[in-house]
């Protein structure tokens, strides 16, 4: 009877969880996640609840703040669009062609991930200012790329550059050449093959990369503030509005704008998750 008891309880313990450490690793994960991320983030919402609705509305919809939304969203969208086009081109060139220096270019694509944003900011500013390498070339034509909205877009292109390349690249590598051969055999031109065979395969990855670059650009601060000129109503990004309010000890106002940004972050996180699920489904269906 004594030995029958543990034997009887054995089948219940065996399924799945034979490896030890589930409780401690999950427990630690939840603890650390709560302390570092969830509780501090909830502080943001509790602080917002101390505002009346009118206070909140006026903080997030004053003309200066609205102008910053327009700049932040507009510039981020433009930058992500440029990154989608050139990211796709770079991914294509890196996967499909051989050329000298290819390995170097491939490694260099990740530079914006590795280079601190403040360094990128001052470096781009030095290049594009009227006495810089690029700025001095453009000045005679009346083109100014620093200390205005153009500068914001350029900084955001820099920091979002790797996203599209790194999401499209693996999908292009896995794409089946047989489909392209079949299209060519059926008389499709190379452009038709690209539009109707290759592009649909990489579209989910391209959109994912676009969404990631866009989301990253919305929150970006370090690289932009050096090059933007930061003129209120003209070239002031939303994260800088938060900093400005904090410096005036307007914690409630800063929190209100931050909640708007955080809400947008949540939406983008859901969008990116949905896009990745779509991409996995695509990949699963084609293989």
């Amino acid at each position: 009877m004594q030995s029958a008891l543990p034997a009887g309880s054995l089948p219940r313990r065996t399924p799945k969880r034979v490896l030890p450490g589930f409780n401690i690793t999950l427990g630690f994960t939840l603890f650390y996640l709560s302390v570092i991320v969830l509780i501090p983030l909830s502080a943001l919402f509790f602080k917002t609840f101390t505002l009346t609705w009118a206070q909140f509305a006026s903080a997030v919809s004053s003309p200066r703040v609205v102008a910053s939304y327009q700049l932040t969203f507009g510039a981020s969208f433009l930058a992500a669009l440029v990154n989608a086009v050139f990211g796709l081109l770079l991914a294509w060139v890196l996967v499909r062609y051989q050329f000298p220096g290819k390995k170097l270019v491939d490694a260099l694509v990740d530079l914006p991930f590795a280079l601190p944003t403040a360094v990128a900011g001052i470096s781009l500013t030095a290049l594009l200012a009227s006495n810089g390498w690029v700025g001095s070339l453009l000045e005679p034509y009346g083109i100014s790329l620093a200390f205005n909205r153009n500068g914001v877009v350029i900084a955001l292109i820099f920091i979002g550059l790797p996203f599209v390349v790194r999401t499209v690249q693996p999908v292009l590598e896995d794409a089946e050449k047989e489909l392209e051969e079949a299209a060519a055999c059926l008389g499709a031109s190379r452009w038709q093959t690209f539009r109707h065979v290759i592009f649909p395969t990489i579209a989910p990855a391209l959109l994912t990369g676009f969404a990631m670059a866009f989301a990253r650009a919305i929150g970006e601060y370090g690289s932009v503030i050096f090059i933007a000129g930061n003129m209120p109503m003209v070239s002031e990004i939303t994260p800088l509005i938060i900093i400005g309010k904090l410096e005036q000890y307007d914690y409630a106002g800063a929190t209100a704008v931050a909640v708007v940004m955080l809400g947008f972050s949540f939406v983008m996180l859901l969008v990116i998750n949905a896009l990745q699920a779509w991409q996995r489904k695509r990949a699963g269906a084609s293989s």
Partner: peptide
């Protein structure tokens, strides 16, 4: 989640705490 939160907001939440 922390990847999609703006760095400025990340700093702000600790100020609020």
């Amino acid at each position: 989640l922390p990847f999609s939160v703006s760095p400025v907001v990340a700093g702000l939440i600790y100020v609020l705490m």
